[in-house]
Design a protein around this nucleic acid. Structure first.
Length: 389
DNA sequence: AGGTTAAGCGCG
DNA sequence: AAAGCGCGCTTAACCT
């Protein structure tokens, strides 16, 4: 596919790189103080010696190869009792931003186009999504404030704005469509916040009485289901005991019986056929679905649950991209489609055309598939990619 | 010097 | 023993 991409405000990224460099140095100095020795925070070997030998911090989890894990969730846990893990987490996230984005992106600006370009690949992923590389523009930070500053460097040309339009809860809507569960269908048809709706069902309260914590748990349940998560996984994520997590799941399936039936059906079909399909019939073969090794078999079952939803979402946005492309090709509006991020399309739009483009863009995306529930699209606009959200 | 793997982490 | 899907990039550590 032709190399796509955006304009970049490289000055902003240089400034941020310098600032991050200073903060990282300060964090390193603090870490050396706490450890009582100088060491490389990025070296698993040196870090392990400091954390688990010198400071005698407990090993909560091991890596597949048997070394003590220092993964983020482990450090979060340890940060409650020890100061160094907290520092390490901050250092990790800042060095990720600097090393992957603020240091690297400015050097990738194409001298002819003045833009940063990526390659989208159509035949890489198992589920039918696109992938993006050199550089990957589908993992530009957004979840933290410091990360959003990087996204703010993605800017439109003079006289244009960035428009970002994304599907709202597309995978859960697809689950509602495929499972035909009455409760889930009703929630989406009534445009109720789906995580709150789930919370109300699972915790037996009215929609208005759903607490923030209940919604957070329901959200974890909803996402967990899409990924085929077990009670064990849910318990670990929500810090519950297994029994309680299992009760949440049981109540969920009790309230949304169609979802349970759909998942059972999908698993059974995968075992029978050796593949699963998206709504449009694209297949994913699962060679390990009947493997002797139960662990591999269960992994294949999780894939079987997830692939129809992730894959159907991928099919839908591809249809939308074709439809948007045909529309823009007519040349009636001054707008360019510049990026795709799985459930989101990013355009550069002439300021005078903003209202019209946003409206028609949403129409094309919403109409890309006819489901039993509305395909809601949310579009934003702004002077950079962050503002457009 | 150059390639590969493991661990970790950015995104949906 | 593992227990949540799909990607790509970076660094350290190890290998040829």
């Amino acid at each position: 596919m032709e190399r796509c991409g955006a304009l970049l405000d490289e000055g902003r990224l240089w400034d941020q790189s310098r600032e991050l460099g200073q903060r990282l140095q300060a964090l390193e100095a603090e870490a050396h103080d706490l450890a009582g020795q100088v060491f490389n925070l990025g070296s698993p070997k040196q870090l392990g010696e400091v954390l688990f030998e010198k400071l005698q911090i407990p090993v909560l989890k091991k890596t597949p190869k048997g070394a003590p894990s220092t993964a983020e969730d482990v450090l979060q846990e340890l940060a409650l009792d020890y100061p160094l893990p907290r520092l390490l987490l901050e250092h990790r996230s800042l060095s990720k931003l600097k090393g992957t984005y603020t240091d690297k992106l400015p050097g990738l600006i194409n001298s002819e186009t003045g833009r940063i370009h990526t390659s989208y690949h159509q035949a890489v992923t198992a589920t039918g999504r696109l992938s993006s590389s050199a550089p990957n523009l589908q993992n530009i930070p957004i979840r933290t404030e410091e990360g959003r500053r990087i996204r703010q460097a993605f800017v439109p040309p003079e006289g244009y704005q960035i428009v970002a339009a994304d599907y709202s809860q597309i995978e859960l809507r697809i689950m509602a469509h495929l499972s035909e569960d009455p409760g889930l269908l009703a929630a989406f048809r009534d445009e109720i916040d789906v995580h709150s709706a789930t919370a109300a069902e699972v915790f037996g309260v009215t929609l208005d009485d759903v607490s923030g914590d209940q919604r957070r748990k329901a959200k974890a349940i909803n996402f967990g289901l899409i990924y085929g998560m077990s009670a064990f996984g849910l318990a670990r994520q929500l810090h519950l005991d297994r029994g309680e997590a299992q009760r949440y799941i049981d109540v969920y399936f009790d309230r949304y019986p169609g979802v349970r039936e759909y998942m059972d059906r999908t698993r059974a079909l995968a075992h029978e056929q050796g593949y699963v399909e998206t709504l449009f019939g694209r297949r994913l073969y699962l060679p390990e679905i009947n493997a002797k090794n139960k662990m591999r078999q269960q992994a294949a079952e999780r894939t079987a649950i997830n692939a129809p939803m992730q894959g159907t979402a991928a099919d839908i946005i591809k249809r939308a991209m074709l439809s948007v492309d045909r529309w823009l090709d007519e040349g009636q509006v001054e707008a360019k489609m510049i990026m795709q991020v799985h459930d989101e399309l990013v355009l550069e739009v002439k300021t005078s055309a903003l209202d019209a483009v946003c409206e028609e863009l949403c129409s094309h995306m919403s109409a890309a598939a006819e489901l039993a529930v509305p395909l809601v699209v949310e579009a934003g606009r702004g002077a950079n990619w962050d503002e457009a959200h």
